[in-house]
Amino acid sequence: MIERLPRERLLIAGSFLLPLLIWSIISYVPFVWHPNVVITDPGDVSWFRAGMEVTREQFSAETEKTTDDGLIAPAGERVNPVYLPAPHKVATAMYTAFTTEPKRRSEKWLHESLWHSITVIFWGFTLSSLIGIPLGVLCGTYRPMSLLIEPFVEFFRYFPAPAFGALAVAILGIHDAPKIAIIFIGTFFQQVLIVANTTRLLDPMLIEAAKTLGAEGRSLLLRVVVPGVLPNLYRDSRILLGWAWTYLIVAELIGTSSGITWFITQQARYKNFDNVFAAIMLIGLIGLLTDVILAKTGRRLFRWQPAEATP
């Protein structure tokens, strides 16, 4: 177990608090940015309406014009554009999004959308891992296997996974299957190469030692290579899982839009940007939380590793 010093804990907290601080300064300190003005009283400006948002330049031009003409000047408050809501608005949105009923009966609650996204990720990543990890380990262990598989995989991984969207829909229909396929394509080819490389990093002396002890072929693979690379494969998988989330957003847009992406696009259409931010942050939180849990589980699983070796 890694014991963190108090100073290190402070820095870790700071890595989250610092961006939040910057966001708060931009949101709550008017003269930092606030490029727009929301009209509270239109005065004698014909095209201003209460609640309307105009740029600062427009507002000052109109104010000047009205005072010059001896008319009533408009009143307003400086605000940030609607697409940058303040932290407290996003926080409330995050709460209310879970508590408000969807607008239409056919629509889903936020937690249902989220859960749907998680299942899509889960299946895409699991299917990819079930094939990709064993294949990668074999490529990393046996040179002929590596020569047969890796060049094509190397080539294929440059195909952007979303490019297969239309094809996936044509073959697999409009529901979850093409989405899972996109995540699979996005993960699998990277996974094979990364796992193969990780496997090749195993200390060759361990293999030689095992050979002088009578291990060969299958016993060498299963009793030396696999346990030897397991902690590193676990670490690779954590990183790849993060990538899978980035493919999720594209995957969910193809066919019938679904999951958290559906929620985000829907809310953006209504200009509820606080909800959009809330949803994006939820994805971040889920990702971070899974990673922390996986890291802790990893330390439990691989107790045989010296503490400084665990990330």
């Binding site: 361990l206 030689e208 030692a209 050979k211 002088t212 002890l213 009578g214 030897g228 045989w304």
Partner: peptide, 21 residues
């Protein structure tokens, strides 16, 4: 013509399997 358990080897580098007690 290849490694075999009838010839044990101890290396300069530590080669115990770290995942085994």
């Amino acid at each position: 013509d290849g490694p075999s358990p009838d010839r044990g080897m101890v290396f300069q580098k530590y080669t115990l399997f770290p995942w085994l007690t």
